[in-house]
Nucleic acid binder design. Structure first.
Ligand code: SF4
Ligand code: SF4
Lengths: 145, 145
DNA sequence: TTCTTTTGCGACTAAATACTCTTAAATCTT
DNA sequence: AAGATTTAAGAGTATTTAGTCGCAAAAGAA
């Protein structure tokens, strides 16, 4: 039951790392994040480019450049990141792969799935990077499942 | 948010089709199912082989051979099929991809995920092929999302 | 200006998933 | 026995996802 792609998980872990560095001023380089979290530099770079284009991050080139959150970590939610990295339709998918997921002739799991999806969406909407950063330790960010 | 692989969804649709044919005696050929549901014959075949090996289906070769449910559709649950086709660890995966998912220093979504997973698992455990077959029409089985 | 640092971006490679094809084995029909 | 039907099995291909590489562009430092 893989919910998120690798790229999304990497991006998320990286953003949480950023959130834990809030006392530092200026930019954090992708190289540092890649090294600290043991994630491929170039792979991370692509993910960050997307997040920069979508306004989650601000980037700056050159010495002592890097990336930085564009908003306080309290105002960036899992929901925003996942929608960007997994696509807008992420929370609208059907469970069994039949078409519609409308209310017309639903299969037995339809209503359940509707509720489950809504719950997941809500959880993602209320969980901020700051919250994740506060609870997740450095050690746990570094290791990957 | 793709939950199940294509192979699993195909298998599920095919099994539901089988469940709707319970008045027919004997075996239903893979060719017929493949044609009726517009699923690749050989791909389906592989999935069915797995289900046969694991005791969900009974198969028989030769003219008027095919496959048949090994138990009444009322006694076959989504849970059984998904565990076979997606692997035993399907319901034990972590949401954010960090290790452990133990109760030691959980991240903010850990508890939520634990509950959500349990709910999904339970739903799959109580939903039988018969139930799915009773609610899903032929038309909806045929089309894929 | 020239060199270094760092992101941006596109092409390339590898691995996993999804799908196809061929042949063998079992079973029935004639 | 010979041929037809149907599943079993494994190899082969295509598409998607994951990860790598190289160089251009921006910006600071010497
Ligand atoms: S009714 Fe069931 S199979 Fe159909 S779209 Fe909804 S969840 Fe999917
Ligand atoms: S605490 Fe969060 S990130 Fe860690 S294993 Fe549990 S759900 Fe995954």
């Amino acid at each position: 039951m893989k919910v998120l792609s690798k790229g999304t998980v990497y991006g998320l872990r990286a953003l949480v790392y950023l959130a834990t560095q809030k006392d530092r001023t200026g930019y954090v380089s992708i190289g540092e994040i890649s090294e600290k979290l043991d994630i491929s530099f170039h792979f991370l770079t692509k993910t960050f480019q997307m997040l920069t284009q979508k306004g989650i991050l601000e980037s700056y080139r050159g010495p002592s450049g890097g990336i930085a959150l564009n908003k306080p970590a309290e105002q960036i939610f899992l929901f925003d990141i996942v929608k960007i990295l997994e696509g807008d339709d992420f929370f609208d998918k059907c469970l069994l792969g039949l078409p519609g997921c409308g209310d017309f002739e639903p299969c037995p799991v339809h209503d359940f799935w509707k509720v489950a999806k809504a719950a997941l969406k809500n959880e993602f909407e209320i969980t901020s990077l700051a919250e994740l950063g506060a609870k997740v330790t450095d050690e746990r960010l570094r290791l990957s499942a």
